[in-house]
Write a protein that binds this DNA or RNA. Sequence first.
RNA 1: AGAGAGGUGGCCGAGUGGCUUAAGGCGCACGCUUGGAAAGCGUGUAUACGGUAACGUAUCGAGGGUUCGAAUCCCUUCCUCUCUGCCA
Length: 423
Amino acid sequence: MLQVQRIRDHKEAFVKALKKRGMDATPVINQVLEADDNRRATQAKLDDLLAESNSLSKEIGILFKSGNAAGANALKEKTSTLKETSKALDDHLKSISKTLQDLLYTIPNIPQELVPSGQDENDNEQTLREGAIPVLEEGAMAHWELAKKYNIIDFELGVKITGAGFPVYKGKGARLQRALISYFLDKNTAACYTEYQVPHLVNEASGIATGQLPDKEGQMYHVGVDDLYLIPTAEVPVTNLFRGDLVQGADLPISCTSYTPCFRREAGSYGAHVRGLNRLHQFDKVEIVRIEHPDNSTKALEDMVEHVANILRALQLPFRILRLCGGDLSFAAAITYDFEVFSTAQDRWLEVSSVSNFETFQANRLKLRFKDTDGKNKLAHTLNGSAMALPRVLASILENYQTPQGIKIPEVLVPYCGFDMIN
RNA sequence: AGAGAGGUGGCCGAGUGGCUUAAGGCGCACGCUUGGAAAGCGUGUAUACGGUAACGUAUCGAGGGUUCGAAUCCCUUCCUCUCUGCCA
């Protein structure tokens, strides 16, 4: 959510930047400013009325104490009419504030200068491409065939006990999953991210603060009896750890990493591109989250991008980095870099990580502030990224490392797996 | 899950309808004092919104209600602690 004051100060620039998302923001911004004027005027009136009412109440108290009941009762008459007016104003204030907030909820974050304009993924800008695409032997298979051949992932078993999109990993497949999680967490903690283990269910307040609720309610699994939501990403519980906090400027940056399973209903997505591990209802992910001083968030984002790139280099997977265009940018992000690994057997790029700077957009909804050196409380910047999401990394390892003898394990993972070949 | 007790500022803690503008203490900051420190003394020390400002308004877990007036009374709800039950 954007702050009204910033919209007021940078109206023209914001409208221009939002054009990159293909959005004409002028009407909604005008509505916001109008609603805000209305809100302020209403509050000023209400405050005056309440002040009068408060002082009358005090007088009444004094009159009663001094035994002047008649005088007190006369004043009571006055306050009752004040009360009616203030009640009406209060209702109006609440409704106008709600209107204002609902309007603000519809405005996405302002894309940064670097973000290219564009409609969809075809307009994304490649900023880096690295790693040789392996040449596979004749008869190379997609990962879902490899999984069956080596008996390491069982999709049918998942269907039996739960449903489609809930795979069962077994034997070396399960061990490789655990190896990847440990490897990613070790890389992240070595880069000074503090490891957290967090609940996999969150309450409504957390869902609202990070923006999953109310808009994307249908995307999350909801446990009705206890009114809790299964997390779609560790971003939700980890970011909410700091909800409502006022941290000391010296404590920044705060860097966290957390492994969690992620649960997504993915309602309405079917087709050839969602086969195998490409899109799941439950998958594992290691997330990195940073809370930064506004002056430092651009640098922090660069660090995170470099960090993720280094993990892919270590795994020796061919990858590219895309700077998302305005149209492909998620609602809350000011700038996002996607990492895609080339899956040779499927002959397509698979998104394995997405690293974003949300600036104050999330922090405003979270009420996450810090005390700056000038003593003022300001909204912090939040950033997050996957480092990494497991299924597509696993898929591309299986596909790119396949040989007629079996699937080679990337060197850095061998100590974590305890074997160097799946065959 | 049942019974009981609670939730007050950065922390502890008083406060059962109006001198509460939340006492008092601790902590913290600044000043005085000192050769320097400690002690002592003094001053200050929440957040949000509105206002150029003076200042005003709101907030005592959250949300409603009663009242001219609520930290205080009533209702709902969340959380914590103790005992009982259940349990990896």
